[in-house]
């Protein structure tokens, strides 16, 4: 059981790869793997932020709404170029993070309630900002972010790799990272140790929102259109699943970055396997639910052991 808890997600990935190599046509190809990596980027980036939030014993349901808001903001500023548009999109996303963080850290609203409110309100704001319009994005720089590669690595995947490295560094090697898991381990003890708990929580939710905004930018770039009505819908659930499958306990106090990457990859492979083998929608929903249940069950076992 302990072995399964530690390596379950990797074993599952290997099993899925083996299954697909045997039964799914054209699976073992560079192009296919590139597609899988490109497609998992938005979930992975949102999951990185989610892992930080879950590390503080919180949860963030507003990731999809932040993606939508970022998508809605891009067309407004793309005339100035990709960098200013992206900066504005991230800035707008951060405002959602500020709202989340303020409610959770300073007013004491439960994370699930606060971020649920922003999940609903955020998408509404996105639609207002976009004037309820879907807009094509034609700026070549942003399109190239979504479509082009450098030495065979798509830019979007490169962005994700950099963010994974940054978050890993943040968690393992910075004061903030250590303080974050301390707050997640015992908020009361962290307060009594003089840690700026409120500031840490605030920063964490802002970081999560900023990451979700980046996910929104990358997704928009790939799509070539700003679609605030549907972009990132329910992505937070995939992100939570990826984090939990990756070994970060929902009870906080621990952040597994590499595990989160593996969790996101596993979800991506599951989705790809189901689509490529033409499994009807209803069955694939059931399959995904079963996998989530198994992951949570294994996590529960881990808690009981400790």
């Amino acid at each position: 059981m302990a072995y399964l808890q530690q390596y379950g997600v990797y074993i599952a990935i290997v099993l899925l790869l083996m299954y697909n190599a045997a039964f799914t046509s054209n699976f073992i190809s560079v192009d296919n793997f590139r597609t899988q990596f490109i497609q998992m980027v938005p979930v992975l980036i949102v999951a990185l932020g989610m892992a930080l939030v879950i590390g503080t014993q919180g949860i963030d349901l507003s990731g999809g709404a932040v993606m939508a808001l970022a998508a809605a903001v891009i067309p407004l500023y793309i005339g100035y170029g990709l960098i200013p548009a992206a900066a504005m999109a991230i800035f707008a996303g951060c405002l959602i993070g500020v709202a989340n963080g303020a409610m959770i850290a300073f007013i004491g609203v439960q994370p699930i309630v606060a971020t649920l409110a922003l999940m609903v309100a955020g998408r509404g704001i996105a639609l207002v900002v976009a004037n309820e319009q879907l807009k094509s994005v034609t700026n070549p720089t942003i399109l190239s972010l979504g479509r082009n590669s450098i030495v065979g690595v798509p830019y979007s995947v490169l962005v994700a790799v950099i963010l994974v490295a940054v978050v890993a560094l943040l968690v393992n090697r910075t004061t903030f990272g250590k303080q974050l898991v301390a707050v997640g381990g015992s908020r009361r003890a962290a307060e009594l140790a003089g840690l700026p708990v409120k500031r840490i929580l605030m920063t964490t939710y802002i970081l999560a929102a900023a990451l979700a905004a980046v996910a929104g930018i990358v997704a928009t770039a790939r799509l070539g259109a700003s679609v605030p009505s549907t972009l990132g819908n329910l992505i937070e659930l995939s992100a939570i699943t990826a984090v939990v499958i990756g070994g970060t306990p929902l009870t906080g106090g621990k952040v597994k970055v590499v595990g989160t990457v593996a969790g996101a990859l596993l979800l991506q492979l599951i989705a790809a396997t189901l689509i490529k083998n033409n499994v009807p929608d209803a069955y694939s929903q059931i399959t995904q639910a079963v996998i989530i249940l198994i992951a949570v069950y294994i996590q529960r076992g881990k808690l009981a052991v400790r």
Binding site: L76, G79, A92, V128, V129, K135
Partner: peptide, 12 residues
């Protein structure tokens, strides 16, 4: 934009 929640459409 964030205050008025209306589009400050510049180029779109």
């Amino acid at each position: 934009l964030t205050l008025a929640l209306t589009g400050c459409t510049n180029t779109g």
